[in-house]
């Protein structure tokens, strides 16, 4: 199944990726190939088979005691941040 250019652009937007117009045909083509390839799954008969989200069957979520174990390390954590001021991470103006 071939993906249309509009579909590829829609997916890229949903994933917040900006594709160079020059790269678009290449993504269109390779994604179409991939979609074809995974489309093969359609032929598998899976009636009555429950989806499996985890590879280890029967394991359940473990719970953590409600304890504060973390300290304020924002100076350290913000060393990787491209733009901060007064302890805040900065982004272009968000309009609500």
């Amino acid at each position: 199944m071939a993906l249309t250019r509009a579909q590829v652009e829609g997916i890229a937007h949903l994933a917040r990726l900006e594709l160079d117009p020059a790269e678009l045909p290449q993504y269109e083509q390779s994604l179409s190939r991939i979609v074809d390839f995974i489309g093969e799954l359609e032929r598998a008969s899976t009636a009555g088979v429950a989806p499996m989200a985890h590879p280890l069957p029967g394991l359940a979520q473990r719970l953590r005691a409600d304890e504060v174990t973390e300290r304020d390390e924002h100076d350290l954590y913000q060393r990787n941040a491209p733009a901060v001021a007064s302890g805040l991470y900065l982004v272009p103006k968000v309009i609500e």
């Binding site: 953590r64 504060v68 973390e70």
Partner: peptide
């Protein structure tokens, strides 16, 4: 709760910005 749902950071209201955001919260 005292701590967050998926991390051990405190949940108290009104702390200075990002002082209660641990690696998991970030």
């Amino acid at each position: 709760t005292r701590s967050k749902i998926f991390s051990g950071a405190a949940t108290a209201y009104g702390a200075p910005p990002n002082t209660q955001a641990c690696l998991v919260d970030l």
